[in-house]
């Protein structure tokens, strides 16, 4: 479990890292909308190009991006298999008993797998290039108008930041507790569902006890560092839109237009070249 790369910051000196985190949040939303608007294979081209250029510009190693996908590979394979067998569209390619594979089913499965891959790889580009503090600062800034209706925007942001920080710590803790209970003869992979859930109690209870203890200590430590001392909290890192942010926004707009229009223009382009 420990080598899940999703959600980790990858320090590098790149244009993408330097973008305003609010802009990056907007870009990710636009990118995700783009991925969901895709309805033909041809429209994946602008999406893939957009993602690839972002990765190259960000100087994040391709291996690291691949690793972020590795975590959800199982989900992708599982949904693909379901889609292959449950979508019976067009020509039957192969059948065995109730299992039928059609070319339409294959297409749907492939599209969905691509969509998931692009989604995860794209969103993890945000976390690779933006520190959790940057993301929460960005969210806080975007949500600022909500302060007017008394939403505790800053508290929400700091809670998110702390959650992100403690995920790897708690994962490591789960590993340790599982080992300790296994050493006391506990087994987690035998018996029916109820038995298995029950088997996890000796892991979950110590985990909760420890999480509460950590929360307690953290609250004390935050108080000791003057949390809530003033309403006029300052920020070390100022969010400022610069020229590069506007350019990024502009490029992303083009990307969205391309994703939408490419299926319409594609026949025309094909036509043009075949002449």
């Amino acid at each position: 479990m420990r080598d899940i790369a999703f959600g980790q910051y990858y320090p590098a000196d790149s244009v993408i890292h330097k973008l305003d985190s609010r802009i990056k949040l907007i870009l990710v939303v636009v990118y995700v909308v783009g991925v969901f608007l895709v309805n033909s294979f041809i429209s994946y081209i602008p999406v893939a190009l957009f993602l690839l250029s972002t990765i190259l510009l960000s100087k994040v190693s391709l291996i690291k991006v691949m690793k972020s996908i590795k975590g959800i590979l199982f989900i992708i394979m599982f949904t693909s298999l379901l889609n292959i067998f449950f979508n019976k569209v067009d020509n039957v390619l192969w059948s065995w008993g109730f299992l039928v594979i059609t070319d339409g089913g294959l297409k749907i499965a492939a599209k969905l797998a691509l969509r998931l891959l692009l989604l995860v790889a794209g969103t993890s580009m945000l976390t690779f290039t933006t520190t959790p503090m940057g993301i929460t600062d960005g969210l806080e800034s975007i949500m600022k108008p909500l302060k007017l209706i008394k939403v505790p925007v800053h508290d929400i942001a700091i809670t998110m930041s702390i959650t992100l920080r403690f995920i790897p710590i708690l994962i490591e803790e789960i590993d340790k507790i599982i080992m300790a209970q296994k050493a006391r003869g506990a087994s987690f992979d035998t018996g029916g569902l109820v038995k298995r859930i029950k088997a996890y109690l000796p892991v979950l209870i110590p985990l909760f006890v420890s999480a509460f203890r950590r929360a307690d200590e953290l609250a004390l430590a935050m108080d000791a560092r003057c949390y809530n001392a003033t309403q006029n909290r300052t920020k070390l890192k100022e969010l400022k839109c610069k020229k590069r942010d506007l350019i990024a926004l502009f490029i992303t707009t083009i990307y969205l237009i391309l994703v939408i229009t490419i299926p319409m223009f594609f026949p025309i382009i094909l036509d043009f070249f075949s002449k």
């Binding site: 507790i177 300790a180 209970q181 006391r184 000796p202 892991v203 110590p206 006890v209 420890s210």
Partner: peptide, 15 residues
């Protein structure tokens, strides 16, 4: 059962 193992801070395994 033959090899008893006591991890660091074993009190954190009590449940």
């Amino acid at each position: 059962s033959l090899v008893g193992m006591l991890f660091q801070y074993p009190e954190y395994q009590l449940f």
